Simulated scan of single mutants.
Amino acid sequence: MKINANAIKPGMVLQHDGGLWVAVKTAHVKPGKGGAFAQVELKNLITGTKLNERFRSEDTVERVRLEQKDYTFLYDQGDVLVFMDKVSYEQIELQKDWVGEERAQFLQDGMEVTIESHEERPIGLSLPEYVTLEVVETEPTVKGQTASSSYKPAIANNGMRIMIPPYMTTGERIVVSTESGEYVRRAD
């Protein structure tokens, strides 16, 4: 779908120079002399490279709609992660390095994720905002340290190192942000 360059907003996916790009930042500039233009910072969805592009107000660009489908994470098979479509029960395999090691560690059996694709090719993977993990190793609680604002290191059941409040012990369940990898709260 062709759109006017003035209508580009951050988050839109565009087809430009033979690749798929997401608009990161946009600024509309009207200089004192000459025509108005849109200064757009683009990021390539496949390679991750960035590009600053200037579009005149009369230019048009091709906007791309990505297909979003819900999948369930099944299992880790070494370098490959296996997901199942919740509707058709079709299985899809994604390379662990494509998903990213820091994001792959949050995947748990049965976890629901959203995979964005363009012409049947996976482009992006969205995890839930929070995951629940169990503390498997941490330092013992020091008496009188419960009101302190300091945190102590711990290891969760997925092998991730995380900083937790000093009053927490081994075996407790915690909620962790998948965006930052930080402790959010104690799980119910």
Rank of each mutant, 00 (worst) to 15 (best):
M12T: 12
S149P: 01
N4R: 12
E112I: 15
T72S: 14
G48P: 13
V22C: 08
I46E: 12
Y89L: 15
E58S: 10
F73S: 08
T146D: 15
K25V: 10
E102R: 03
E119Y: 04
R121G: 00
V61T: 04
I123G: 01
L125Q: 02
L81A: 06
K33S: 10
A156R: 00
V61E: 03
E93P: 05
E53Y: 03
Q77N: 14
K143Y: 08
K2E: 13
V22M: 14
D109T: 04
A187R: 09
V113C: 11
S180E: 10
R161I: 06
T132R: 08
L133R: 11
Y167L: 11
K43T: 13
Q145H: 02
M111G: 09
S148L: 12
Y167N: 08
E62N: 10
E90G: 12
M12V: 10
E93V: 14
V131G: 01
L125C: 01
L20T: 13
D79L: 13
R65I: 04
P166Y: 05
R65N: 11
L42E: 02
S148D: 09
R54C: 00
P153Q: 05
M1Y: 09
L51C: 04
A5Q: 01
F55A: 03
T138Y: 04
L51S: 07
K30N: 10
E172L: 06
E134S: 00
E116S: 12
Q108W: 02
E53S: 08
V176C: 05
